[in-house]
């Protein structure tokens, strides 16, 4: 069993108006990796290419220790997938869906499926078309967790949900990775969700990976220095990752806030949220 549940190396996909350029990242076993970026950054393209929904133009993908050429469709028994919005035929109920998946996944765990339905108060016999968005997403996550998946791949699974449902779903993710063989790749533009659960953050912007860092590094080491024009001019350029001019001050992203504080004792340096870091990278200058 390898160290990584998912390895992506130089993944490239070209469209007329967009290119996903040689992106690389890994999902270590037992971890949650958050794929962040604004809408249209390339998160879904990357996930669709990993899942084989679209064909990549270049790059290597290895899932659960198997290279593409070694993969047959049986490996998908171990991959749980959740897309944004609905995932299943509207005319079906969770009960009927059980018949479908019982005859599709060789690893389908019927009792776990019904237990999770009960736990999250989802009706067994109501048609999916009558479900709210939150109920649909819960159902999708339940399905992904009911066939002994080792890797969950979720594309915007928490977007458009109220905080309570989002919290329920995030708890399920955390519970899933309690088993150190299980891993999650989750894309989201709601960075606060990933701040709660992710171990690593991969930031994609304009089809390229801008950074791939541990969440703790971003949260506890990165900082935003707030400074005036004179102080900004005196800063060593090597200490700046990106900066952005606001009305009367400059926001400067630094990689190590404690050493920056020692070097510039008069500077005001705040802890940075992932949202702020992402915004600085997108709107700031280098």
């Amino acid at each position: 069993m390898g160290k990584y549940a998912l390895e992506v190396e130089g993944l490239t996909k070209k469209y007329k108006d967009f290119v996903l350029k040689e992106i690389s990242f890994r999902v270590p076993r037992g971890s949650i990796v958050g794929l962040i970026g604004e809408n249209g950054a390339g998160k879904s393209t990357a996930i669709n290419a990993i899942l084989g929904i679209i064909q990549k133009d270049a790059g290597e993908i290895s899932i659960l220790g198997k290279q593409e050429q070694e993969m047959d469709c049986s490996i998908r028994n171990e991959i749980g997938v959740v897309f944004d919005g609905n995932n299943f035929s509207d005319a079906l109920s969770p009960e009927k869906l059980n018949h479908v998946f019982k005859n599709t996944y060789t690893t389908w765990d019927e009792s776990r499926y019904f237990d999770l339905l009960k736990q999250l108060s989802l009706p067994r016999n109501k048609k999916i078309k009558d479900f709210s968005k939150g109920m649909r997403m819960k159902l999708s996550v339940i399905v992904a967790l009911s066939h002994n998946s080792k890797l969950l791949i979720l594309d915007e699974a928490t977007s458009g949900l109220d905080p309570i449902v989002r919290d329920d779903i995030l708890d399920m993710f955390l519970d899933f990775v309690q088993d150190e063989n299980n891993s999650i790749l989750v894309s989201s533009h709601i960075t606060s969700d990933l701040e709660k659960v992710a171990d690593y953050i991969v930031f994609i912007h304009n089809g390229k990976v801008v950074f791939n860092k541990s969440k703790d590094d971003l949260k506890y080491k990165y900082g935003i220095m707030r400074c005036g024009a004179a102080q900004f001019d005196s800063l060593d350029k090597k200490d700046m990752i990106v900066y952005r001019k606001r009305d009367y001050e400059w926001d400067v992203l630094v990689a190590d806030k404690s050493s920056a504080q020692k070097k510039y004792p008069k500077a005001m340096i705040d802890a940075a949220t992932i949202d702020e870091i992402m915004l600085l990278y997108i709107k700031g200058e280098k």
Binding site: F83, F88, S89, D90, T104, I128
Partner: peptide, 19 residues
């Protein structure tokens, strides 16, 4: 039902299943 499958995203999801 093919159209319904397209609207409900099922046609995308089924590719990710072990089939």
């Amino acid at each position: 039902s093919s159209r319904k499958d397209a609207i409900s995203n099922w046609n995308k999801f089924e590719i990710t299943m072990p089939v």
